[in-house]
């Protein structure tokens, strides 16, 4: 057996009153759920990088009129198809030189551009500044995404809540509609809508939203269904709180994680659809730029002037990757079990 250590006698005094133990010391600081979510999110390096990237892109889009160096739609045929040039810095690939018949030629001089002219990302076939077009194009693509997501929320969330909350026949009926809408390939609906409506921002948003809300509605319904059975909701109902109040006070906060995460996946989806539609020529009409139209224009000249496609392709991919990864990060932050176990 272990040796009994020598200990001063005065240590053997009862410190508590026998009947009244002093308790309930919680040693880690209590965090609210949202604080915890934020802490987990900010601890995730990938998510933080993505969040920063997205914030930068969003800020640039918002302040596009200030940031863009040129008017994105101003044509100048004499300056068409100029390669990228960054000031007077002589960086290969960014110095305004172009391979012409095996020789590197200063394309700017050839086009007779005034001294000091430089287009950081070059110009397109109409002599429009590509950087400005990309900034405005990103702005337009983001507007489409945000609007489509908003419509998604406005239709999908209430639909899901009502369907899940009412249950029974209402639910069955509402789910039938969801089933039918979702069994039509969304792309086809989008294309049909685009053909019927006039090409443009509103049509794209409507076309994307008309199918997009289904996923949101499904998820919200499933979650509402679960929440409905939770004790605290039952308690609120027993206490006679009105349905609207329960929805806003208890349901929405608890649905927020589902909604936020789904939103993060709706945004890249909407951006993709816009790009896709513009790429096949039924999206944003000329002369306005969106990432899709830029890609479509760039593709036509890709063989000879690859920079015209690379720039929008990289921006589009960055936005898609960043939103997808941020979505992942948010999901992990909201539901740590999904990644840790």
């Amino acid at each position: 057996m272990e040796q009994i250590p020598q200990t001063p006698k005065e240590k053997f005094k009862l410190v508590h009153d026998e009947n009244n133990a002093e308790q309930e010391k919680i040693s880690t600081p209590a965090l609210t759920y949202m604080q915890d979510v934020r802490r987990r999110l900010f601890k995730n390096k990938v998510a933080v990088v993505c969040l920063t990237l997205i914030s930068i892109i969003v800020l640039i889009s918002i302040f596009a009129p200030i940031i863009a160096p040129h008017n994105p739609n101003a044509q100048n045929v004499t300056m068409s198809n100029l390669p990228p040039k960054l000031g007077n810095l002589n960086i290969p690939g960014m110095n305004g030189y172009q391979n012409m018949g095996g020789k590197m030629v200063d394309a700017y001089k050839q086009a007779g551009a005034p001294k000091g002219t430089s287009f950081i990302l070059g110009t397109d076939y109409l002599g429009r500044d590509l950087l400005s077009r990309i900034i405005y194009g990103t702005r337009l693509s983001l507007i489409v995404a945000v609007l489509a997501t908003l419509v998604d929320l406005l239709i999908g969330v209430p639909y899901g809540i009502v369907s899940g909350w009412k249950g029974g026949k209402t639910d069955t009926f509402m789910q039938r509609i969801v089933e039918i809408v979702s069994s039509v390939p969304n792309l086809i609906v989008v294309i049909l809508m685009m053909i019927v409506l006039k090409p443009g921002l509103t049509s794209i948003v409507i076309a994307i939203a008309i199918t997009g809300w289904v996923t949101m509605a499904r998820l919200v319904r499933a979650q509402t269904f679960q929440l409905k059975e939770q004790e605290y909701i039952l308690a609120a109902r027993t206490l006679g709180e009105s349905s609207t109040k329960i929805a806003t006070k208890h349901l929405i906060p608890n649905l927020s994680s589902t909604i936020i995460i789904q939103t993060m996946f709706t945004i890249p989806n909407a951006i993709f659809f816009e790009a896709f539609l513009s790429f096949i020529g039924i999206g944003i009409p000329a002369p306005n730029a969106s990432l899709g139209t830029l890609l479509s224009d760039g593709q036509k000249a890709f063989r000879f002037l690859p920079y015209q496609m690379w720039a929008p392709a990289i921006i589009l991919s960055i936005i898609m990757i960043a939103t997808n990864l941020l979505g992942d990060g948010l999901r992990d932050a909201f539901d740590p079990q999904s990644s840790e176990h």
Partner: peptide, 22 residues
Amino acid sequence: SILGLSIPSFVLAVLLQFYLAY
């Protein structure tokens, strides 16, 4: 897998066509 999810097929198609074929 994130790259696969994020890069639209038409961008990928153009890049593949340009580099691997052309």
